[in-house]
Nucleic acid binder design. Structure first.
Lengths: 221, 221
DNA sequence: TCGAAAAACTTACGTTGTTAGTTTTGGAGA
DNA sequence: TCTCCAAAACTAACAACGTAAGTTTTTCGA
């Protein structure tokens, strides 16, 4: 065959393209995510992708949809609100952590899959069920969202490029906290030391926020 | 003059380029931030910028530095830890909100200016001063960071493209919380309704987290 | 059976970041 | 004061990117 026309079995599909794009982004970083690179990995030429996605932006939408389908809000069905929210927030965080590189792109796109909307509905329902006024429930759900996304977007640890002790002369308090964080042993899934600080920071923030929420719920009872 | 060579007064400098870049990003969005666009606004041709920044990535570093110089941790000097942290987190958030478009780029770069490092040192010092163990202080500082950045990165509100009531058939709890949030009157700097939900969500998260922190500090006393 | 639409292709255009080499000027050292 | 090198603007041009246009082959519904 010389001038290849339509193949017997389609080589591409919107979802397959998006899945390949997620692979590339995870393996080689978001800068490597070019239309030609995606096509190459699928044994195809760049412009062929445009038979299935209308633009790169549209492809990013498809990737967002694919990621959000990984979300699972079943943990929120529990009667124990604290355990439910904690498990949901963790699983939510884990999904985005898996796609860490394109989080900034994905996080700013509208929420449209049933899985993602179901998650927001489930956490809203849980908060309402335990007595929070609706407007306050919206704010609390947003706050938890922010904590999850912030912890994935930025890694607190990675911001500090010097060794903890090298901050001591100019920033003694910062150095003290970082050195202490560096000495923390591994606990469960969180790695030891500075490498685990991001996860521990997320866990700490969630625990404190839920502590505060507990007090609030008691008062409303 | 025909072939323009070195000008009498330099037209460019690293900081001036970065400042212009921030202007463009704020006014026309991050996609409009091209080397040629920056140059044009400064009355110069694209490649001239490379006499002052070594690459676009380097320019992004310079922009990050400029933004982080706007940070101000003086609020943390107060004896009242709660008021201090609240004021600091708000001012921190306001700075990033002003540069909302390039936050994803900026947030992932190392913290190197005195202002930014001073902020982390100040909040670490405040937490230590009030009795938090150092490792826990690191985690708490990280958590507050996440809340601030998450609230700027994503706008909870903007994720929902339908009108609140249109979620009711499929996602009743979500609809109820969003409708209630939409009915909230303006309070201080936060606008009324859905438009203010992002700020209120941040405030709510911060308040709850600090409530939890208060309980923790009391126990440590 | 036939024709339109689908799905691959090739070619090519404008933009982007960036390099190379040119020209003019500023300023330090003789 | 003169000289000369480095600084700072320029022009020209490249490769890579997203994408449009038009071509070819195959599938599938009327």
């Amino acid at each position: 065959m010389h001038g290849m026309g339509r193949p017997t079995n389609p080589l591409l599909s919107r979802d397959a393209i998006a899945a390949t794009a997620l692979d590339i982004s995870a393996e080689e970083g978001p800068d490597a995510l070019t239309m030609r690179a995606i096509a190459a990995r699928m044994g195809v030429r760049g412009p062929s992708l445009y038979n299935h996605v209308s633009s790169k932006d549209d492809l990013l939408d498809a990737m967002t949809a694919l990621i959000s389908k990984e979300l699972d809000s079943s943990a929120l069905a529990t009667a124990d609100w604290r355990a439910g929210i904690t498990a949901y927030a963790r699983s939510y965080r884990r999904v985005f952590l898996r796609h860490h590189g394109i989080l900034p792109i994905v996080a700013r796109r509208p929420v449209q899959t049933a899985e993602a909307l179901g998650g927001y509905d489930a956490i809203s329902a849980a908060l309402l069920r335990h007595g929070l006024p609706p407007a306050e429930a919206a704010e609390t759900a947003a706050a938890i969202d922010y904590l999850v996304l912030g912890s994935v977007l930025e890694t607190y640890t990675a911001g500090f490029i010097r060794a903890p002790r090298d901050y001591r002369p100019e920033y003694p308090a910062l150095a003290e906290t970082l050195e202490a964080a560096d000495a923390v042993p591994a606990a469960g899934p969180a790695p030891a030391g500075l490498a685990g600080l991001d996860e521990r920071g997320f866990e700490r923030g969630l625990a404190l926020l839920l502590d505060g929420l507990g007090v609030r719920l008691d008062r409303l009872r």
